[in-house]
Lab assay of single mutants.
Amino acid sequence: MTVRVDGVDYEFSSLEEAVRFALKMAKSKGAEVQLHNGTFHVE
């Protein structure tokens, strides 16, 4: 599972870890999280 934040990809071994990271980053940026074909994008 890959989480992309500001064009940088972060790899996670589990969906749970990836979701937690994506939500944490989105909250800190006041951004939204989108899921596309198994890849999260924080914008």
Score class of each variant (00 low, 15 high):
residue 27 K to R: 11
residue 32 E to H: 13
residue 13 S to A: 12
residue 39 T to F: 12
residue 11 E to L: 13
residue 42 V to H: 07
residue 23 L to C: 15
residue 21 F to A: 02
residue 39 T to V: 15
residue 12 F to R: 00
residue 4 R to D: 03
residue 36 H to Y: 07
residue 16 E to V: 09
residue 20 R to I: 09
residue 7 G to Y: 03
residue 30 G to L: 07
residue 32 E to Q: 12
residue 35 L to T: 05
residue 37 N to W: 04
residue 30 G to F: 06
residue 40 F to S: 10
residue 23 L to K: 11
residue 13 S to D: 11
residue 12 F to M: 01
residue 30 G to W: 08
residue 15 L to Y: 14
residue 26 A to W: 06
residue 24 K to P: 00
residue 41 H to C: 15
residue 3 V to W: 03
residue 39 T to C: 15
residue 29 K to D: 06
residue 41 H to W: 14
residue 2 T to H: 11
residue 42 V to E: 12
residue 31 A to G: 11
residue 4 R to P: 00
residue 36 H to F: 12
residue 34 Q to C: 15
residue 33 V to Q: 04
residue 42 V to L: 04
residue 1 M to I: 14
residue 43 E to Q: 10
residue 5 V to Q: 01
residue 14 S to C: 14
residue 19 V to Y: 15
residue 11 E to Y: 14
residue 18 A to R: 00
residue 22 A to L: 08
residue 10 Y to N: 01
residue 32 E to F: 13
residue 41 H to Q: 08
residue 41 H to L: 14
residue 32 E to K: 13
residue 42 V to Q: 07
residue 36 H to I: 15
residue 39 T to W: 12
residue 25 M to S: 03
residue 4 R to Q: 06
residue 22 A to S: 01
residue 15 L to K: 07
residue 16 E to S: 07
residue 7 G to L: 02
residue 8 V to R: 08
residue 17 E to L: 06
residue 28 S to T: 11
residue 19 V to A: 06
residue 4 R to K: 07
residue 29 K to Y: 11
residue 14 S to P: 00
residue 40 F to C: 15
residue 2 T to R: 11
residue 43 E to L: 14
residue 38 G to N: 07
residue 6 D to Y: 06
residue 21 F to K: 01
residue 20 R to E: 13
residue 40 F to T: 11
residue 17 E to R: 03
residue 6 D to G: 08
residue 25 M to Y: 04
residue 17 E to K: 04
residue 32 E to N: 13
residue 8 V to N: 04
residue 26 A to V: 05
residue 28 S to Y: 11
residue 31 A to I: 11
residue 8 V to M: 07
residue 17 E to C: 15
residue 18 A to F: 03
residue 39 T to K: 14
residue 40 F to A: 12
residue 34 Q to N: 10
residue 8 V to H: 07
residue 35 L to M: 11
residue 39 T to Q: 13
residue 24 K to T: 11
residue 38 G to M: 08
residue 33 V to D: 03
residue 29 K to V: 10
residue 10 Y to T: 01
residue 35 L to D: 04
residue 2 T to Q: 04
residue 28 S to E: 14
residue 41 H to E: 13
residue 1 M to N: 06
residue 16 E to A: 12
residue 16 E to R: 09
residue 28 S to I: 14
residue 41 H to I: 15
residue 23 L to P: 04
residue 16 E to P: 03
residue 30 G to C: 14
residue 38 G to P: 10
residue 42 V to T: 09
residue 30 G to R: 06
residue 32 E to D: 09
residue 29 K to P: 08
residue 7 G to M: 04
residue 5 V to H: 02
residue 42 V to M: 04
residue 43 E to Y: 12
residue 10 Y to L: 02
residue 33 V to G: 03
residue 19 V to L: 14
residue 1 M to P: 07
residue 32 E to G: 08
residue 6 D to S: 06
residue 13 S to F: 09
residue 2 T to S: 06
residue 23 L to A: 09
residue 15 L to G: 02
residue 36 H to D: 05
residue 19 V to R: 10
residue 7 G to P: 00
residue 13 S to W: 07
residue 12 F to E: 00
residue 31 A to R: 09
residue 30 G to M: 07
residue 11 E to K: 13
residue 38 G to Q: 04
residue 23 L to T: 12
residue 37 N to R: 04
residue 19 V to P: 00
residue 12 F to L: 01
residue 16 E to D: 09
residue 6 D to I: 02
residue 27 K to G: 09
residue 43 E to P: 07
residue 5 V to P: 00
residue 12 F to T: 00
residue 26 A to Y: 05
residue 25 M to K: 02
residue 40 F to L: 15
residue 34 Q to G: 06
residue 33 V to E: 03
residue 43 E to I: 15
residue 25 M to C: 15
residue 20 R to D: 12
residue 40 F to W: 10
residue 7 G to H: 03
residue 21 F to D: 03
residue 31 A to W: 13
residue 7 G to A: 02
residue 28 S to M: 14
residue 9 D to Q: 06
residue 15 L to P: 05
residue 10 Y to M: 02
residue 4 R to W: 10
residue 35 L to Q: 05
residue 40 F to G: 12
residue 22 A to M: 07
residue 6 D to R: 03
residue 18 A to L: 05
residue 8 V to K: 08
residue 26 A to S: 06
residue 33 V to F: 04
residue 6 D to A: 06
residue 33 V to C: 15
residue 35 L to S: 05
residue 25 M to R: 02
residue 39 T to D: 12
residue 43 E to F: 12
residue 26 A to Q: 05
residue 10 Y to Q: 01
residue 35 L to F: 14
residue 14 S to G: 03
residue 18 A to W: 04
residue 12 F to Q: 00
residue 16 E to F: 09
residue 31 A to K: 08
residue 28 S to D: 12
residue 26 A to T: 04
residue 11 E to N: 12
residue 18 A to D: 00
residue 17 E to Q: 06
residue 7 G to W: 03
residue 7 G to N: 05
residue 43 E to D: 11
residue 23 L to R: 11
residue 36 H to V: 13
residue 9 D to G: 03
residue 33 V to T: 02
